[in-house]
Amino acid sequence: MLFDFGLVFRQIPKILKYLPVTLEIAVAAMAFSLILGFLVALIKIKRVRVLTPLAGFYVSFTRGTPILVQLYATYYGIPFFLQFCNAKLGTDWNVNGVPPIVFALVALALNDAAYSSEAIRAAIVAVDRGQVEAAHSIGMTTWQTLRRVVIPEALVIALPSLGNAFIGMIKGTSLVFVCAVVDMTAAGRMLAARNFRYFEMYVSLAIIYWVITLVVARLLVVWERRLRRDARGVKGLAPTEGGTRDELDDSTARLTQKV
């Protein structure tokens, strides 16, 4: 048999056992990436001295080098760094004891944060400056304003690009075998090595990744709609009910009709 169709679907459950590894790496790396990306965005917006050029260098360097190179660099770089610390600072870290997943997380998070920071920065800058002033004028502190006003609005703006970044992250996890982590793709390669049905295996993997990204994209749309609270109509006031609409003045009616 040239191409074993049945195998493509039969072997899917076997590789799906490694789906949790893939998702764990993607979610954890995304979380670190968002925190780091947010900090980098704040540094750039506030133009913090010394840190701003450093952040610029980091973003430029990371966006200018391939993810595969970055994965290898962390895989060899972190042990090297630990060894260096042991020699110079007298620490006693186990150079060979670093769990492989750490390399994958560090590389993927650092890579993605460079992209996310730009999306987050643009979103924060896009939030209506007047609302920030309004928050200040009722006595809210900078942090309260950020948490209660800026972030909720910036999130709506940044969500589509951060969502794409997350989808990219899920697909990016397929490279972590270079750091000796066994994710879905790595597991698939090992399974295929037994019967040399590599093509069937990659077709199976492609189907799984595609379905995952479809689901994630769908969830993101739903989430975005939830965040845009004002586009969901008014509680107890359906815009289509003729009776209620009569009570609204023109401009309000026009706005709710659109909803």
Binding site: A135, S137, R148
Partner: peptide, 30 residues
């Protein structure tokens, strides 16, 4: 800021908060 309050030309209400939540914001947060 705590003892003055500004009303702006362009209102600047918080986009994703209802009228009620807009008014409550300062009471709850500040």
């Amino acid at each position: 800021r705590r003892h003055t309050a500004m009303v702006f030309q362009l209102f600047h209400l918080f986009t994703y908060k209802t009228a009620l939540e807009n008014v409550m914001e300062g009471l709850v947060t500040v």
